[in-house]
């Protein structure tokens, strides 16, 4: 008997029931919600404010540039300090043309100094960014470079995690990786002393924009 049959048979013997597939499939179809916290609810302005507040509480830096400002301008200080190529999403690459910094869309490497991603959405309840991998969207960019920038449009700030999943479901083919990011990397494994930049970025910079929904382009 294979391990698969062994394990399934053990479970069925213990549960002493044979056919419960109906209840399972119904639940998988209906996807009932649990309690959605009050902090995940509110109008767009409230959610935007809460998103910024929670993200900063998690040590992310938030920049809110004037409408229409291209990323190289918003990130001029970072671009000046970073040698080599800037790893970015295909959807953002056009913004870098003609400006400072060489933006490329590729898998990140250990020596990369700066990456700029487009977030699928932001979640107000905990100041969390939702990123998804895909063609032209290297997820490694969010983890290898010491400085990671994520652009998100104010129209893409949702209240809670459930609303974020609605966005992922609406975005089409399921991405291999969906990553929630709340602040820069950290560890307290040595003497419970919290330090930023454990393996992932030491700095997370959120560029909260208006009318520039890069992820959907």
């Amino acid at each position: 008997m294979s391990d698969r049959e062994t394990v399934l048979q053990r479970i069925r013997q213990r549960l002493k029931v044979s056919e419960r597939a109906g209840a399972v499939d119904e639940r998988l179809q209906q996807r009932p919600l649990g309690p959605v916290p009050a902090r995940a609810c509110g109008d767009a302005a409230t959610l935007r404010e809460r998103f910024v507040e929670r993200a900063e509480a998690a040590s992310a830096e938030v920049r809110q540039p004037p409408r229409g400002e291209p990323l190289p301008t918003t990130l001029a200080d970072l671009v000046a300090g970073a040698d080599g190529e800037i790893v970015t999403d295909e959807a953002l690459r056009a913004e870098w043309r003609g400006g400072a910094g060489r933006a490329v869309c590729r898998r990140a490497r250990p020596e990369d100094a700066l990456a700029v991603s487009a977030a699928l959405c932001g979640v107000a309840e905990t100041g969390t960014l939702v990123l998804a991998s895909g063609p032209g969207r290297p997820i490694t960019a969010a983890f290898l470079p010491p400085v990671h920038v994520a652009a998100v449009d104010a129209a893409d700030i949702v209240g809670g995690y459930e609303a974020a999943w609605e966005r992922v479901r609406a975005a089409g083919a399921w991405p291999r990786a969906v990553t929630w990011i709340t602040g820069p990397s950290r560890s307290a494994d040595i003497e419970q002393t919290l330090n930023l930049g454990a393996h992932g970025p030491l700095r997370l910079i959120i560029v909260l924009r208006n009318g520039q929904e890069a992820f959907r382009e």
Binding site: R54, A58, E125, T126, T128, W174, P175, R176, A177, V178, T179, W180, I181, T182, G183, P184, S185, R186, G200
Partner: peptide, 11 residues
Amino acid sequence: EITVYTTFSTG
């Protein structure tokens, strides 16, 4: 409130 990284991998 939440860990820094929460990743869902599919295939």
